[in-house]
Design a protein around this nucleic acid. Sequence first.
DNA 1: CGTTAATTCGAGCGAACGTTCGATAGAACG
DNA 2: CGTTCTATCGAACGTTCGCTCGAATTAACG
Lengths: 197, 197
Amino acid sequence: MQSYDRRFEDILDSTEDLFAEKGFHATSMRDIAHAAEMSIAGLYYYLPSKQAALCLVCTRIFDRLDAAAHELHGIADPAERLRAFVRAHLAYMLRNDDAYRVLLHDMDALDGEYGDRMRLRKRRYFSLAADLVSRLDVHSAFVSPRIAAGALFGMLNWAPTWYRRGVDGAIDTVADTILAIFLGGISAIASPLEVRS
Amino acid sequence: MQSYDRRFEDILDSTEDLFAEKGFHATSMRDIAHAAEMSIAGLYYYLPSKQAALCLVCTRIFDRLDAAAHELHGIADPAERLRAFVRAHLAYMLRNDDAYRVLLHDMDALDGEYGDRMRLRKRRYFSLAADLVSRLDVHSAFVSPRIAAGALFGMLNWAPTWYRRGVDGAIDTVADTILAIFLGGISAIASPLEVRS
DNA sequence: CGTTAATTCGAGCGAACGTTCGATAGAACG
DNA sequence: CGTTCTATCGAACGTTCGCTCGAATTAACG
């Protein structure tokens, strides 16, 4: 039923917006129903529970991120592939309203099997990025891959808290700057004599 | 009354732990009362409202952070002062259980005057760090102070999500590594020819 | 001791929560 | 037409929420 699927996506759109704006716990099923312009009982025809709604929203976000990451397989050069990943990841964080908040915070509210499944996907996505980093020519024995990946993701995932359109320039430029700090920093630690203090 | 103050701090300790662990909205006043080993009505003898409880907890955390930052005034060298700040900030993020979560997320739940006051303190603290960065000898015309401070705080504030005791080494060492990545990265952008690609 | 003030609690208020149920309206199909 | 299935809703369930009140208990002081 095509009309069902369209309505279903509409509802998930509204749900995602509300979770991103107010957070999972501060959003009620009545809020979602109102945003989707239907009754609470009608909402439950599409969503079995609030937890399932959060799980569906998270799954959709991961689907988009993974789809963007999957397109990187065509890029042979490891440095360019990492650059493309950084650009895509930051772009998703900074566009799409505050959808990133659902992943970075609300996801922890998922219990049981829902929680296990989503935490697994989160780990997979992050290790995908750590893999890209480890394949760089610039490998440093002085910085562990865990800290390196953590530093890179930190700069990227923190960006939504300070980035302002029109003040901080184009998103791709910010992505390149962050990547340059990261690569320059790693390189400086790997060969500290080449940078004067 | 000394006994009152001691009890008050005990209650705020319990409140901070619960907010950090489960989040503001997922924590009920009954949870707090139970953790503080008293009745709900008795709890309201100390706390006028749940919002006030969050505000008090946030204030306490900022007091600690500001106190640590205030000790840096004795350090003359800008680079060493920044290093001390980075160490102190990361140490607070990684010790004190998950208190950082209250600041980085739950604080947004504060309404009205409470919210205004805390957001002002947050901005002050962050601009304090941006000030330290701008006073470095290494100034780059290619990286704006906003992006630089955002990158540094990103690496620091994201650390609690990946740091594991016993796996990633001493906290001060991690702080030094993050600072090295930051300074090396900024320097590399400032004088790109000195780092081979 | 009696009196006053500080501290704690049981009980419950109204509201909002997630969720369910039976009924209903419309479309689909014979 | 009647029947079946899809989609929607009003009303309400039981629970928990933040919060309050009046009474009881304890400590302080004369």
